[in-house]
Simulated scan of single mutants.
Amino acid sequence: MSQLHRRGFLLGGAALGAGALVAGCTGNSSDKDTAPQVKAPPAASGSSEAPGKPVTIGFSAPAADHGWIGAISINATAQAKQFSDVTLKATEGTNDVNQQIQQVQTLIDAKVDALVILPYDGKALTAVARRAMEAGIPVVNLDRVFANALSYRTWIGGDNYGMGVNAGTYIAARMKQAGKANPVIVEVAGLDNLELTQQRSQGFREALEAAGMKVAARQAADFTAATGQRVAAQVLQANGKIDALWNHDDDQGIGVMAAIKQAGRDNEFLMVGGAGSKKAMDDIKADNTPLKATVLYPPSMASSGIILARMIAQAKSLGDLAELEVPASVTTYSAVVTKENVDRYLPTAFS
């Protein structure tokens, strides 16, 4: 459960502390006083990790044609194996929307106890996810959100806007540290027609603006190494001086780094990546390339999705929260990985 951000107070000591505080505040009150009484919620029904009733969880995701997507499926399978009471029925990854719909329908017909779905296209899979919910099968929606909340019980995914904010905040801090008043900051984005790309760019731009800086040049690629190299070469050619570069995606970043090396500009500026690949983290740790940080978009959300699906199917709750039910949404945090903390995050990296 380390990947879930547990907000709220711990039920044990914190609840006791609250009770003691109430007693202390009302100890000198007369019988006529009507001070509000604080009542702690009932404790959660046992550890969420303790074995429960056997459940079957269906899992569906796109084809593993990208390191991050591949890690999603690997993490989901590995997490399910950690539970003796979970049977995982995983479909073959596909980027064919109609095929994924059919696969999910097959899982519904098999009467699985819960579904974890990363849709290739959230809008297109909304109807079949809704059918699952109507059949009494709770759906955990991974990352690419369905068109309406009637199609899922819980959503867990990344924070694209926050990813941009944290990349911009880190770069701004490094620029101020270096004494650069008007730094030239460029951005190599992902697919521009995707909302997630737009959100990342918005967060990046607004974080820089808050620090009195701006994006000098921006160009979109399409999350592949080949386009990353081509686009980065164009950006480098158009900008004779660069102080910092943010690349949205670490797989795409392989091409960006190749373009930087080919241009002989390895030591000119710092680069920040995105998502959290093992190669990026290895480069950050070695500290011998322009890449000095990457902003996470953790595929460990798939592991957490399996954990949440199991808890929902077994009517369990998050033990460290006061809530009696699993939350309706969980947003992962886009931590900035640097040389100083890379060892902590390496176990979460994807190949």
Score class of each variant (00 low, 15 high):
Gln37Lys: 14
Ala35Leu: 12
Gln37His: 07
Ser48Val: 02
Gly70Asp: 11
Cys25Tyr: 01
Gly13Arg: 05
Pro54Val: 05
Leu10Thr: 08
Thr26Met: 08
Glu49Phe: 08
Ser29Asn: 13
Glu49Asn: 06
Ala44Leu: 10
Pro41Gly: 10
Gly46Asn: 10
Ala61Tyr: 06
Ala23Ile: 07
Gly8Ile: 05
Ala61Ser: 14
Ile69His: 03
Asn28Leu: 09
Ile74Met: 08
Ala44Trp: 00
Ala50Lys: 15
Gly58Val: 06
Leu11Tyr: 06
Ala18Glu: 08
Asn28Gln: 11
Val22Ile: 00
Ala64Ser: 13
Gly17Ile: 04
Ala18Cys: 09
Gly70Trp: 03
Pro51Lys: 11
Ser30Gln: 05
Phe59Met: 11
Pro36Arg: 05
Gly27Leu: 13
Gly52Pro: 04
Pro54Phe: 10
Asn28Glu: 13
Ala61Arg: 00
Pro54Arg: 08
Ala64Leu: 05
Ala40Asn: 15
Ile69Val: 15
Leu10Arg: 12
Pro36Leu: 06
Pro62Leu: 04
Pro62Gly: 03
Thr56Trp: 01
Pro42Lys: 15
Lys32Trp: 02
Ile72Ser: 02
Glu49Trp: 07
Trp68Arg: 03
Gly52His: 09
Ile72Tyr: 11
Asp31Pro: 00
Pro42Gly: 13
Gly46His: 11
Pro54Tyr: 10
Cys25Asn: 07
Val22Tyr: 09
Lys32Ala: 14
Ile69Glu: 04
Gly58Ser: 04
Gly17Thr: 10
Lys53Ser: 12
Ser60Pro: 04
Ser45Trp: 00
Pro62Glu: 12
Gly13Phe: 03
Lys32Cys: 01
Asn28Val: 01
Ser60Trp: 09
Phe9Pro: 00
